[in-house]
Design a protein around this nucleic acid. Structure first.
Lengths: 261, 261
DNA sequence: TCAATAGTGTCTTTCAGACAGTATATA
DNA sequence: TATATACTGTCTGAAAGACACTATTGA
């Protein structure tokens, strides 16, 4: 029922975001392969599925390879040249975005891709070595620099979906905290919101939200003040994100009914 | 780079919801296969990928099979015994949920599954023939009847994700309209909201939301009144959902910069 | 008449947007 | 001093929750 049947290739593609100079940016690499040669593309690669579906001696169990999530994490490390410890330490956020499975989205062979997005804090950006092959690539401002019509395959769709996703979640999920330094000021957090929404936000109103976050224990004040810009002005209070226990862990929609036997 | 490599199997699994007797229900089928025999499972099946990855005469193009989305739609038709025309006519909602790609989630071979959820209006439920093989199966109340520990594979995770998704989208997406008859009363729509959220909603406050929907052109009044229950009481005003042009069609996050050449 | 359902109105709280004003730093 | 940034307060309106009330049907 599942052995000798034809199977698709499965890849992961990554929409890696950061915020630099007040602008939302995405990491793109220059393609070298046969197809879409020279175009810009999202980083990605094949999911390691071991020897799945290949003939093997009877009795030997199949090596099923890595989780799709693990493949995304591995690719993130490879494409940015950041090791797993750094990614963890700086709480780089990685989340599944959508699966793109149109036939012929890759003309060579059937490829289904599971897209993820990642949020890289600006402090890590100088360490990122985009693309092992060191070809022309790097961070592109989503608003002004991404050459939408020059993106390979359906990567423009994937990128659009990624931007829409972080915009949609910005107001109710801790998206922005993954795009500021570990210790941040109100202005820095606001500028990240402005970059993602691509519009100005009222200072006073944003402070009110910050105040609620503090009351809710979502952020805590950090001793010491710091000028956000360095170019003068009154120094700002600093904050730190206070990670909550993951609400998804308690996620069985209703009490388990259990087996009566 | 993509020919002779091992590939995973890819399936679609469906979380098919309806609301019956004031309760959110999901369609489960009794498994007959070798693995997880006798357990309950979400309906699903393999994505047709043509002859992808198989050896073929040089020069002959690969048959890449069907889109993943098309596979989900096809499975929905097969598992419910509803034809495509009926699904369209009754605006059955089908949307990608999440992709589950843990290694060993199926012990036989590496299987990555793209989960979709579907919303079936109650008027269609009597026509649904659950499972071609006609084994014991059917609609289970998510709150009281689903035997979570007896679900095959990781289908409990998939179902949980589906319930969480429609709950999260209930207040800002037209989820509920796909779970009432084409012409509905305020009470009927409210009961669908109550079933999904699994708690009572104040009549008056819900009416206020309905009023706004009418002002926004989201719903329109239908002439004629009808008692919701049939057991007496004052007859209710009827409404009809007014489909909007899909906002996702205008979705390029920023103006296309275009090629300068 | 009662029971059941439909529908209205009001009070309160929360929160966002707009905007004016004050406070503290550097040059 | 001027300028830049940080921070506070106030007015308004939109919307949700709680709850009391009236209206119209069938039995």
């Amino acid at each position: 029922m599942s052995g000798p049947w034809p199977r698709p290739s499965v890849t992961v593609d990554l929409v890696i975001f950061t915020v630099l100079e007040g602008a939302l940016k995405v990491l793109l690499i220059r393609r070298g392969g046969e197809v879409c040669h020279g175009m810009l593309a999202l980083p990605g690669g094949f999911v390691d599925v071991g020897d799945a579906g290949l003939p093997r001696p009877p009795g030997q169990p199949e090596d099923q390879g890595e989780d799709v999530e693990a493949a995304a994490l591995r690719e993130l490390g490879e494409e940015t040249a950041l090791d797993a410890a750094l990614l963890r330490k700086h709480r780089v956020h990685l989340e599944q975005l959508y699966t793109f499975g149109r036939a012929h989205r890759d003309p060579r062979t059937r490829v289904i891709t599971v897209a993820y997005y990642a949020l890289v804090p600006p402090e890590l950006v100088p360490l990122v070595q985009a693309g092992d092959d060191a070809s022309e690539a790097g961070w592109f401002s989503v608003a002004t620099e991404v050459p939408w019509s020059e993106l390979a395959f359906d990567h423009a769709d994937i990128l659009s979906t990624g931007v829409a996703r972080i915009r949609g979640k910005l107001d109710y999920a801790p998206i922005a905290f993954s795009l500021v330094p570990a210790v941040f000021t109100a202005s820095e957090l606001r500028q990240v919101h402005e970059a993602i929404r691509h519009q100005k936000i009222d200072k006073g109103n944003f402070r009110r939200r910050l105040k609620r976050m503090r009351e809710d224990g979502l952020i805590v004040e950090v001793p010491g003040k710091r000028s956000s810009t360095g170019r003068g002005g009154r120094p700002a209070t600093q904050y730190r994100f206070q990670a909550q226990e993951d609400p998804e862990l308690a996620a069985r929609p209703w009490p388990v009914s259990g087996r009566s036997s």
